[in-house]
């Protein structure tokens, strides 16, 4: 991993982000960028169905055994780094 420039490292897994093109999620590898989009995209559904808050939503997603590995890693990253709902496009 040492040959990946720190600027080009994925913020979630440390792998190559391929230059970090993502305007939404910046500095993520292709897998985690797609997972990031999933996490942000599904929140309105959870909010409408369960009335869940952003933090509760992330905790549920991270805990759920049906959650995919990349989505879980992103959810855990967001919890660890206290990524707020309004920051999710930052």
């Amino acid at each position: 991993m040492s040959d990946v420039h720190p600027k080009n490292r994925c913020r979630v897994c440390g792998g190559s982000s391929g230059g970090g093109s993502g305007a939404d999620s910046g500095g993520l590898c292709a897998c985690h960028e797609a997972a990031w989009r999933e996490v942000c995209g599904h929140y309105p559904t959870w909010e409408a169905r369960m009335g869940a808050g952003w933090g509760e939503y992330l905790a549920e997603v991270a805990r759920n055994p049906l959650t995919g590995a990349w989505v879980r890693e992103v959810a855990e990253f967001m919890i660890r780094n206290r990524i707020a709902r309004q920051d999710r496009r930052a």
Binding site: C31, A34, A35, E38, V39, H42, T45, W46, R49, M50, V61, N64, L66, T67, G68, A69, W70, V71
Partner: peptide
């Protein structure tokens, strides 16, 4: 595998 890794379960 990618589909499974990107799955986000929705409640019902």
């Amino acid at each position: 595998e990618e589909g499974i890794s990107l799955h986000l379960p929705d409640p019902f």
